[in-house]
Amino acid sequence: MSATDHAAVHHVHRDDYGSRMGMWLFLFTELILFGGLFIIYAVYRFVHQQEFHLAAQELNTTIGLINTIALLTSSMTAAMSITAMQKGNVRFSKALIWVTIGFAFVFMVNKYFEWGAKISHGIYPGSKDLLAKPEGEILYFGLYYVMTGLHTLHVIIGVIFFLFILRQIKQGKIASDRYVRLENSALYWHLVDLIWIFLFPLFYLIH
């Protein structure tokens, strides 16, 4: 997101504030991207209330809860890594980023088993079992796969951002006096968390 270190002949312009502003604008686009899905969810839930209710009972609240805790905790460690960087404690900052990535993997492994269980029960797009269900449940599971899938994709992108940040810390491009990229990656990570905060009750807690 930041435009700090390109070709030397050309304007060397550093503006951390502007970088954060650009990142926020980007986060809005992500918000609205998921927003489109939330609109679809809202409409279909409004139209098929009973069926959404029934379908939601197939989901395992415990797995959802574990994932919620994993993301909330990783969000905290991501935020703390900025504090550590600001205080000049680079090693601790790096450790916290690794912890964040670790929780991201906990989330993904969990998700893998959750999807795996659904698929082995014959609930996946286009499956005979799913198509035999009422329309509302087909839509529920369609949305379930798309929304949690897109969310997991964002988790993966967040991990890639953090790996990139770790490399830049190693190269000295991120330090206690220039850490806006770390801030921006953390912002992205918090957005992933924010979206999950809404996905969790909407899919796991409506029975």
């Binding site: 139209v47 098929h48 329309e135 509302g136 839509l139 369609g142 949305l143 796969y145 798309v146």
Partner: peptide
Amino acid sequence: TLGVGIFDPALGGD
């Protein structure tokens, strides 16, 4: 590509 039911009326979509 994946046959997920979102908009297709055959799968309950609108």
